[in-house]
C-alpha cells in the first residue's frame, strides 16, 4: 500500500483551474482536501509505490496544473513488511517542521 499527500499548485487562470479540478474528479483513489487559494491538498492511495509515482507524474501533466509537491509518502510493500522498521515506512518531505523528529517507538 502506498499513501501520498500532495499539494497541487493550480493555474492562476480561473477557467484552467476549473478544468484541472474537473479532470481530478475523474481520478479514482484521489481524496481532495480543502482548496486554499490555488493550492489543493490531495491524498492518493495506490496498491504499491510504483503506481503511486505514476499518478504523481500523470497529475503533473494535467492541463491547469502547474506543478505538484509531495509532502507525505507512506509505503508498505509486501517485501518490506518484515523489515527493520517493522510494519511500515513513512517519509515526510518538504514542509512541516514536525517531520524532523525521530521515531518514538
Amino acid at each position: 500500500m502506498s499513501v501520498s499527500g500532495l499539494v497541487i499548485t493550480l493555474s492562476e487562470e480561473p477557467s484552467a483551474r476549473d478544468r484541472a479540478l474537473e479532470s481530478l474528479e475523474a481520478y479514482p483513489g484521489i481524496e481532495r482536501g480543502q482548496l486554499s487559494d490555488r493550492w489543493l491538498p490531495v491524498v492518493v492511495e495506490r496498491p504499491d509505490d510504483e503506481s503511486g509515482e505514476a499518478v504523481f507524474r500523470e497529475i503533473s501533466l494535467l492541463p491547469g496544473v502547474e506543478y505538484v509537491d509531495v509532502v507525505f509518502v507512506h509505503f508498505e510493500n509486501a517485501d518490506t513488511k518484515q523489515g527493520a522498521l517493522g510494519n511500515g515506512q513513512t517519509k515526510g518531505m518538504h514542509g512541516s517542521p514536525q517531520v524532523t523528529a525521530a521515531s518514538n517507538r
Binding site: 499513501v3 501520498s4 499527500g5 500532495l6 499539494v7 481524496e31 482536501g33 480543502q34 482548496l35 486554499s36 493550492w39 489543493l40 491538498p41 490531495v42 491524498v43 509537491d69 509532502v71 507525505f72 507512506h74 513513512t90 515526510g92 518538504h94 514542509g95 512541516s96
Partner: peptide
C-alpha cells in the same frame, strides 16, 4: 496524516 500534512502545506 497525509491529508493533514498536505492541507497544512497548501494553507
Amino acid at each position: 496524516s497525509a491529508m493533514a500534512a498536505a492541507t497544512a502545506m497548501a494553507r
